[in-house]
Design a protein around this nucleic acid. Structure first.
Lengths: 184, 184
DNA sequence: TAAAACCTACCTATCAGAAGGTAGACTGGG
DNA sequence: CCCAGTCTACCTTCTGATAGGTAGGTTTTA
């Protein structure tokens, strides 16, 4: 409940989403929240530990917003729209790309533990989408559809943050909803 | 001509694709090609100048592989498959994500000049796809289709490099070709 | 044609600043 | 008193960048 601790996590998340793992420093976080870098080390001993907790928290929040897929209760259309909504909200919260999307594009230089968390995020997304879309009538199997949807939204979020244009996500979301579920 | 110069560009490109703009240094490039960092500065005075030339070269090579879209001569299907092929080849060349895709996810911390080159790359891709797809029968307009295709392939390339799995691009390419052109 | 001037590509040495991280001391509330 | 939270002070390593020098080739000019 230490408010400093969550301020550190908030600031770190924003900075990673702005410039990646190599784009933030203990000193800068400290300055932004008005403490010294040694105090940040008190809460998170290493950069890897801090990054790890930021990534885990992001994962949790993301899937909390998403909920459990309910293929029995909601149509694929409805669930796909919900999925797109969560990406839109994630973007709106800071006008920046997905934390794990950013980390994905630095994978090779990431500490192993962080890369694993990112991979888990991807797999959790695919699993969610597979369940949500499995009943849609389509000659593409659920895995391929899921991977397309996830790739498209991550890509769209990156471009939206590059161009500072929320409409990119809106248009790609619309296109993804229309095309993904429209095959015979 | 100067082989050192192109070695620097090659090495820098690989390092950026591995870890972004903040993921490479003059010293590391120099060490990898067997010279001193001051000699890298002789060829490229600043990091921004080096990054700029790497990005411009990548843009050129990418569109050289793509060629000019020929909507009169080739069907949208054929051209979309060609487009996916170029992404596949770009991945295969180093098992890494698209240079501009990586830079997209660091946009905020990039020098302005570099960010502009990245934005131009995105716009050139959309323009190419719009031309290639404009004749496809579809109730989605060409812009939305183009943005979906580009977002999906950039996203897929990121995940493919994260998971070191070329099949991600193959599957997303297949899905994108099937769904994008299949509406009434 | 020979000397002077210049250019290219590298080098050594160095800088100031920022990075991640550590040790030890201070402070205020339970 | 204890201890979480913060501080000062510092270390080492790396960063982008600069100054100045050297060897060798080319170009200009007297």
């Amino acid at each position: 409940m230490s408010s400093t601790r969550s301020k550190i996590l908030d600031t770190a998340e924003e900075m990673v989403r702005a410039g990646g793992y190599n784009g933030f420093s203990f000193r800068e976080i400290a300055t932004l929240i008005g403490i010294k870098s040694a105090s940040v080390h008190h809460h998170f001993p290493t950069k890897e530990a801090l990054m790890l907790e930021v990534a885990r928290r992001y994962h949790e929040n993301f899937f909390a917003a998403l909920g459990v897929p309910k293929p029995a209760r909601h149509s694929p259309e409805v669930q796909l729209e919900l999925y797109c909504e969560v990406f839109k909200k994630a973007f709106q919260s800071s006008e920046r790309a997905c934390l794990c999307g950013v980390l994905t594009n630095e994978a090779e230089q990431l500490p192993d533990s962080v890369r694993e968390v990112v991979i888990e995020f991807v797999q959790a997304n695919i699993a969610w989408l597979e369940q949500a879309l499995e009943k849609s009538p389509n000659d593409l199997n659920a895995v391929k559809r899921a991977e397309l949807v996830y790739s498209a939204l991550e890509g769209a979020m990156g471009v939206a943050s590059l161009k500072q244009d929320q409409l990119w996500i809106d248009r790609v979301s619309e296109a993804v909803c229309l095309t993904t579920l429209s095959l015979i």
